[in-house]
Simulated scan of single mutants.
Amino acid sequence: MVFLIQNSQNRDTSALQIKLDEEPEEYSGYMSSDLIRLLGYMNDVECQDRLRGFLAIDEIQTKFDASIALARNGQTVDAAIWEELAASNDFRIELYEELEAMDKEALFPTKYRTQAYFAEAYLYNYASDDYSPSEIVLLGERKATFKGSLARFFIFKVAYGEEGEENAESYLGMVGPFSLDEKEWHSTDALTMIYWEEMFDKKKVDEWFRSLLKSAQEE
Rank of each mutant, 00 (worst) to 15 (best):
G53E: 06
Q6F: 14
L172S: 10
A119P: 01
E165W: 09
R37Y: 08
I136Q: 01
T188P: 00
A15M: 11
D44Y: 04
G29V: 13
E163G: 04
T145G: 00
I194M: 15
F200Y: 15
T110L: 13
L212E: 06
E169K: 15
M199A: 10
M102N: 00
D12C: 08
E120A: 05
N43F: 02
L85Q: 04
D78P: 05
P177K: 10
E163R: 13
L212A: 02
E105P: 02
L16N: 03
E59M: 04
I60F: 05
I5A: 02
A216F: 10
A87C: 10
F3L: 11
G164Q: 11
Q75I: 04
V2Q: 12
G148W: 13
P24V: 03
A86S: 11
A168W: 13
I81R: 02
E46A: 11
K147L: 12
L38M: 13
E26N: 15
K147W: 07
V2S: 07
N73H: 03
Y117P: 00
T192V: 15
V45F: 10
Y126C: 05
M1N: 13
D65K: 06
K19I: 05
G148R: 09
G140S: 09
F64C: 05
S211F: 07
R152P: 00
I36S: 06
T114L: 10
G164K: 08
D90H: 08
Y122K: 09
E98W: 07
V77P: 02
W196P: 01
E166H: 10
F3R: 13
A101N: 12
G53H: 01
T13N: 12
L70A: 00
F200R: 14
S88M: 06
W196D: 14
D21G: 05
L51C: 11
K19E: 10
